[in-house]
């Protein structure tokens, strides 16, 4: 039996949790979804059935804290008799997965992007520059799945939600949350399906208005290259690449970014890449699906107009 952790965020199941359910279902064994957190309307969790769960378990719990959540998840895995635990690799998922692995004495494979073939799990390595096929002989496994690497399909129907609880001994929070500060953008970069990203070619922070406008029209998050965040034109939360965030949206639009190897490392797994650069020799064109050679300041307004027309249609 495979257990899938469902992350609750703002009173809803995160989309990456549905990806994990679909993935787990296709591993072939029965899937139990375990949601930990607080959700006002627990019937919302019944939806997990549509994406592959045959049972849905809810453990009511205050705020996220990695030790508490890991204790509960591994207790659930032991009690329900599961040998495989699948966790989406969000920031929270990555914080609990290794703890769960140690508690269950399981092997852990992180950053998985596809279903196993020949018993080997495909995972991203060298920061997006390659993939590895990882095997383990361990009888128990914890797998973290890279968000947005697995399509979501409806494969079942809603199932009723079971409440579960454990005694409090193993769940002492070890860290105390003082404050949460939302990043500026409306759509979190790590969850965005479309990302509009810009580099030093934009000349200065005062020119980001048009980047934000285009992103808004496309329902996209904004990102930037390293020098842009180093110069404080944009916040560091937007920096993508080898030393920034790794993302794999459906669409990545790079404007005025040269396409240095360290930048590409963080974005090259994006499904469709658009490069806009005034230099026809810019390395970004080598990895792009669509390209425009031109001045960003002339190209972006045209894109904004076309996006407005599309949104009206």
């Amino acid at each position: 039996m495979t257990l899938v952790y469902l992350e609750i965020s703002d009173g809803k199941i995160k989309k990456s949790g549905f990806e994990a359910l679909n993935f787990a279902h296709k591993l072939g064994e029965d899937v139990i979804a375990v949601a930990i957190g607080s959700i006002a309307d627990t019937t919302l969790l019944a939806e997990a059935g549509k994406y592959g769960a045959s049972r849905v378990v809810y453990i009511a719990q205050p705020e996220f804290e990695n030790n508490t959540y890991a204790s509960l998840l591994s207790a659930a895995a032991s009690q329900l008799g599961s040998n495989t635990v699948v966790i989406s690799g969000t920031y929270s998922g990555k914080a609990i997965a290794p703890r769960v692995a140690v508690k269950l004495q399981a092997a852990i494979i992180s950053g998985v992007v596809d279903l196993p073939a020949d018993n080997a799990f495909k995972k991203g390595v060298f920061s997006g520059k390659a993939f590895a096929f990882v095997q383990t002989n361990a009888s128990k496994k914890v797998i973290t799945l890279t968000p947005n690497s697995f399509n979501i399909e409806e494969i079942g129907t809603e199932v009723s939600v079971e409440n579960m609880s454990f005694d409090n001994n193993s769940q002492t929070p070890l860290t105390k949350s003082i404050e949460k500060i939302k990043a500026g953008g409306k759509i979190p970069l790590t969850e965005a399906e479309v990302v509009v990203s810009a580099g030093r070619g934009m000349k200065g922070p005062e020119n980001w208005g048009m980047i934000e406008e285009l992103a808004d029209l496309l329902g996209a998050a904004t990102a930037c290259s390293k020098p842009v965040s180093d110069m404080h034109w944009r916040s560091h939360n937007e920096h993508v690449g080898q030393t920034g965030i790794t993302i794999k949206p459906n669409l990545y639009i790079a404007i005025g970014i040269s396409g240095a190897i360290q930048h590409l490392a963080g974005v090259s797994s994006s499904k469709v890449i658009v490069a806009i650069n005034k230099d026809p020799e810019a390395p970004f064109f080598k990895v792009a699906d669509y390209g425009i050679v031109g001045d960003a300041f002339e190209v972006i307004p045209q894109l904004i107009n076309a996006a407005k027309t599309l949104n009206k249609a």
Partner: peptide
């Protein structure tokens, strides 16, 4: 765990260029 095999990402089909005067 063991690493059984490695693979490089598939090469892109090639880039489709759009004229800057007709960027829309």
């Amino acid at each position: 765990i063991t690493f059984a095999k490695f693979e490089l990402p598939k090469a892109k089909q090639g880039v489709k260029m759009i004229n800057a005067d007709n960027a829309g």
